[in-house]
């Protein structure tokens, strides 16, 4: 499944149902560039999970709402509720655990 870019307008509607993984990132962040292919591969492997990205530079309100203090930060939602959140680079296994 392809990875969606979320904005403040599309965020709540997207996470409202099912399981969603959100990767908070920015272009100036080296570790985010390492996280990205892992998140993409996770999306390929797990079509049942909506996999999304939030560019914290373009979406400062979303970054503030979730108190993003370091990137990459990954957050997993189920039916609109935050179920897991992890700061720093995450491996495929860690992402799979977050979305269980």
């Amino acid at each position: 499944m392809s990875v969606l870019d979320l904005t403040q307008d599309s965020f709540d509607g997207t996470i409202a149902s099912g399981t969603t993984l959100v990767d908070f990132w920015a272009v100036w962040c080296g570790p985010c560039k390492m996280q990205s292919p892992i998140v993409d591969a996770f999306a390929e492997k797990n079509p049942q999970v909506k996999v999304c990205k939030v560019n914290v530079d373009n979406e400062p309100a979303l970054a503030a709402r979730f108190g993003i203090m370091a990137i990459p930060t990954l957050a997993a939602f189920r039916d609109g509720e935050l179920i897991q959140r992890k700061v720093g680079l995450s491996s495929m296994e860690e992402i799979e655990d977050m979305c269980k």
Partner: peptide
């Protein structure tokens, strides 16, 4: 407090 205000990378997290 790593990732909760503590950072090892100014160019990664500074913008926040």
């Amino acid at each position: 407090l790593l990732g909760r205000g503590v950072s090892y990378c100014a160019t990664c997290d500074g913008m926040l």
